[in-house]
Amino acid sequence: MPRSDTPLLDADGVDQALTSMAVRLRAAMLPGVTLVMVGVRTRGVPLARRLATILTRQTGETIPVGAVDITLYRDDLDRAARWPVLHGTEIPFDIDGADVVLVDDVLFTGRTIRAAINSLCDLGRPARIRLATLVDRGHRELPIQPDVVGLLVATTRDEHVRVRLHEIDGVDEVLK
């Protein structure tokens, strides 16, 4: 499968998508419940940080941001020729009773999110977990749906969708 690298979003597009996601997250906030963000390693973490910044700008409240490493919860560990390098979960706040927004870059089969939810549930009992992803490209293998999406993309199964973020890749863009 050749990579055609069709641009889906440029830097402005990513910005607008995140801003609109933040608006929708805020609209459905639970009153009186602490809102926290947890990014899925690797690219979910800077996205969570950016959404938190936007929401803080809007509400004036600081929103804690954590990172979850789903490696230990993956269902395909035994299939991998070599296990992924572990970077660790860093959630330096209590998620018991919190309103958690789980953030990832691309939603595909849903297996990563399943692992992330399991991982979060081992850390405590949140009041609610919502899912925010920058891109939803379809082809779910588990009954998982996002609450907030920046961009819906129709893809074939073997296409690649790549999110590049300036914190990691030096540039903001989404490519197919």
């Binding site: 954590g66 970077h87 914190e167």
Partner: peptide
């Protein structure tokens, strides 16, 4: 928090 963990050598 470490947004971009340093790449490590894979364990072999």
């Amino acid at each position: 928090m470490n947004l971009n963990p340093a790449p490590r050598i894979p364990w072999t």
